[in-house]
């Protein structure tokens, strides 16, 4: 199974990465050889084998939803590249009607 340049561009867009034509060719080559190596997995008979979920049984245990202390809003917003009016600021998401 090889990857085409078009698939590379599609996957990059799904991952919200913009890559140029030259980069796309290079990534296609690199990902192609990696994926070719992955083909060895098809040698393994996995019929009836459950996919690995987690290391220990209790790992997916749920906990009670109890309110606890949270970080102060001021500190959280101070990490943001753009914040104001007690909120994160982003470009316009919903167009005006």
């Amino acid at each position: 199974m090889r990857i085409t340049e078009q698939e590379v561009l599609h996957v990059a867009h799904l991952a919200r990465l913009s890559i140029g034509g030259e980069e796309a060719a290079r990534f296609r080559r690199e990902l192609g050889s990696i994926l070719e190596y992955m083909d060895m997995l098809s040698e393994v008979d996995t019929s009836g084998v459950e996919p690995f979920v987690c290391v220990h049984e209790q790992a997916s245990a749920t906990r009670d939803d109890e309110p606890a202390e949270t970080l102060p809003l001021r500190l959280v917003l101070a990490q943001s590249p753009a914040a104001g009016h007690g909120a994160f600021e982003v470009p316009l998401v919903i167009e005006e009607g």
Binding site: R16, L17, S18, Q79, S80, P81, F88, V90, P91, V93
Partner: peptide
């Protein structure tokens, strides 16, 4: 994604452009 922390390269008008 450039919203809550870390780097943001901003295009004021377009959210998708900001992500990319």
């Amino acid at each position: 994604d450039g919203v809550r922390y870390g780097l943001r390269l901003c295009d004021e008008r377009d959210l998708m452009e900001m992500y990319l």
